[in-house]
């Protein structure tokens, strides 16, 4: 039996220390101590701090304040709105459509909604909105160009080349420089109408306008209520034929009411009732003279 209390120092670890060391060498325990325990401490500290509703509120308030102070810095403030490419009327309309009270933080500006609000305005063809350095809300607008006047029962409208409505006018005479079209569905064939107007340049003095008939073909209306009925297919060619006839034989100068070109192989003329009466009378004289 060994002595109970050995005099010399025992190099052997006690059972507890031995087990402890083995325990600490276990990979799971080591990972737990290295990662799990700091994590648990942090979570516990954060949890105990946030357990109080007032502290939580204060923390949220602080975050909100910080955000606001950042947003209200002069670097992010937008002072004016610059509109390029728009007429004065359109500019006013845009300013009315986008009511902003400047200065405003650029974080509060929703550029996409501003853009869509401007894009729904009739005279606007396309628009891009951006914030320019220097605190300027830059709005670049491409305006629709008025090309024709469209008269309907509801009123008189100005259309661009794609047939989109630009604005409404009270009186045809306010835009005498633009050609006139009329009829249901005329706005869908503005391009064709423009071609016809170009072809009808020789008749410029007498041309009153175009009328869309049945949403498929055009009538050219001239002064003295003369009409040229064009076919739905290739109306420009038909019109050119009429103009050629007219120039050769002064057809349109005569007392003709309607030139019907709807059937290309059988152009038809309708004379005015007076002309018919005259013609009949002249024929009678000739027959009686025989």
């Amino acid at each position: 039996m060994q002595s109970v209390n050995p005099v010399s120092r025992d190099p052997a670890p006690s059972r507890l220390r031995y087990r402890m060391q083995r325990w600490m060498l276990t990979p799971g325990i080591r990972l737990g101590l290295r990662v799990g325990m700091p994590l648990a401490l942090v979570v516990a500290a954060a949890g105990s701090y946030l357990a109080d509703a007032d502290r939580r509120g204060a923390l949220v308030q602080q975050a909100v304040d910080l955000r606001e102070s950042l947003e209200q810095r002069p670097e992010f403030l937008v002072g004016v709105m610059a509109i390029d490419g728009a007429s004065a009327d359109l500019s006013d309309a845009i300013r009315a459509a986008v009511p902003l009270d400047f200065p405003i933080s650029s974080f509060d500006l929703d550029l996409e909604s501003i853009r869509s609000a401007i894009a729904v305005l009739d005279p606007v063809k396309s628009v891009s909105v951006r914030i320019r350095p220097g605190g300027v809300l830059q709005v670049d607008v491409a305006e629709r160009q008025p090309v024709v006047v469209w008269r309907t029962r509801d009123g008189i409208r100005i259309l661009d080349e794609s047939g989109a409505r630009i604005y409404q006018i009270e009186d045809r005479k306010s835009r005498p420089d633009l050609p006139l079209i009329a009829g249901d569905g005329a706005q869908f064939a503005v391009a064709e109408a423009l071609e016809l107007f170009a072809a009808a340049a020789p008749l410029k003095e007498r041309l009153r306008g175009l009328v869309r008939i049945g949403e498929r073909r055009w009538d050219v209306v001239l002064t003295r209520d003369q009409r040229i009925l064009l076919p739905p297919d290739d109306p420009v060619r038909a019109l050119e034929r009429v103009i050629a006839l007219s120039e050769a034989q002064d057809m349109l100068e005569r007392d003709v009411a309607v030139v019907d070109m709807r059937l290309a192989e059988r152009p038809t003329l309708r004379m005015t009732p007076d002309a018919v009466q005259n013609w009949w009378r002249i024929r009678d004289i000739k027959e009686s003279g025989q």
């Binding site: 060994q2 025992d10 190099p11 052997a12 670890p13 059972r15 060391q21 083995r22 060498l25 990979p27």
Partner: peptide, 24 residues
């Protein structure tokens, strides 16, 4: 011949070797 003593000696050796190996 003395179990307790031998056990201590084994413990000493195993502990030191484990410590060097850094693995259980």
């Amino acid at each position: 011949t003395a179990m307790q003593e031998t056990e201590r000696a084994i413990r000493t050796a195993v502990q030191a070797a484990q410590k060097m190996a850094d693995i259980r």
